[in-house]
Amino acid sequence: MRADALRRREALIAAAREQFLLHGDAVALDAVAARAGVGIATLYRNFPTRRDLADATACAVLEDMQLAASEASATFAERPEATWHAFAERLVKLQLGSVIRALSHDPEASMSPQVAATQQRTEQAVEAVLAQARDAGLLREDLGATEFVLAVAKVSQPATVHAPDAFPGFGARLMAMLVAGMRPDGRPLPTPGDQG
């Protein structure tokens, strides 16, 4: 792929990440194209269907998460607490919520093989970091990779109030509070449906 074509494709994926996060599957594809600074025909040349765009967006976010996890694993032993907090904050900045919103287009449809394979590799990389965090006493034993990633994705969803405008760095601060709450304290996590 030529360099200019690759730049346009990357711009479309970046725009889709933002737009899926804000609007979910309701986003208009021409809005994605406009945000990327290209015409709708360019979008369709790169991604013939909405599903193709959603899958590419999901894979891009998952690959970024995998890279973040691999880099965190490499430095965890040297600076466990700083690495753990930096990893969590980096995941918030990746806006993981866009993966969920991008793939919500058809809950009945099975995940594409490409997305499924990327997700599996990413979960393994994240679980390696979580294992190091557990060994360092920074993460409770009963919190797995899926719950952790879903929690980060929820934090990275756009706020329904204008808190980020009032509090710069609000997402990072919220994630820091969440990470603090994930520390071991001897109490099991409540199961879904528990009232207390």
Rank of each mutant, 00 (worst) to 15 (best):
A131E: 09
A131M: 11
A131T: 08
A131K: 07
A131V: 10
Q132M: 07
Q132W: 03
Q132L: 07
R134D: 09
R134C: 10
D135C: 07
A136N: 05
A136K: 00
A136T: 08
G137S: 15
G137F: 11
G137H: 12
G137E: 11
L138V: 02
L138P: 05
L138Q: 05
L138A: 04
L138K: 01
L139V: 06
L139Q: 00
L139N: 02
L139H: 02
L139T: 03
L139W: 00
R140I: 07
R140P: 03
E141D: 06
E141W: 04
D142W: 00
D142E: 10
D142F: 04
D142G: 05
D142H: 04
L143C: 06
G144P: 13
G144Y: 14
A145M: 11
A145W: 11
A145R: 03
A145I: 09
T146N: 12
E147F: 10
E147A: 15
F148C: 10
F148K: 04
V149P: 00
V149I: 08
V149D: 00
V149F: 02
L150Y: 11
L150I: 13
A151L: 15
A151V: 14
V152M: 14
A153H: 01
K154F: 13
K154G: 03
K154I: 12
K154W: 13
V155G: 02
V155E: 04
V155I: 11
V155K: 02
Q157T: 15
Q157H: 14
Q157N: 14
Q157V: 14
P158I: 12
P158C: 10
P158S: 11
A159C: 08
A159G: 08
A159M: 02
A159F: 01
A159D: 05
T160Q: 14
T160Y: 13
T160N: 13
T160K: 14
V161W: 12
H162C: 08
A163P: 05
A163N: 07
A163S: 11
A163T: 08
A163F: 06
P164K: 04
P164I: 09
P164D: 08
P164A: 05
P164S: 06
P164W: 11
D165S: 03
D165L: 06
D165N: 00
D165C: 05
D165P: 02
A166S: 06
F167A: 07
F167V: 13
F167N: 06
F167I: 13
F167K: 02
P168F: 08
P168R: 02
P168A: 14
P168S: 13
G169M: 06
G169R: 06
G169N: 09
G169I: 06
G169Q: 06
G171P: 03
G171W: 00
G171D: 05
G171Q: 03
G171L: 05
G171N: 00
A172W: 07
A172T: 12
R173T: 03
R173I: 01
L174T: 09
M175P: 00
M175Q: 06
A176E: 07
A176R: 13
M177G: 02
M177Y: 08
L178P: 05
L178V: 15
L178M: 15
L178K: 12
V179Q: 00
V179E: 01
V179N: 05
V179D: 01
A180M: 12
A180C: 11
A180F: 12
A180Y: 12
A180W: 13
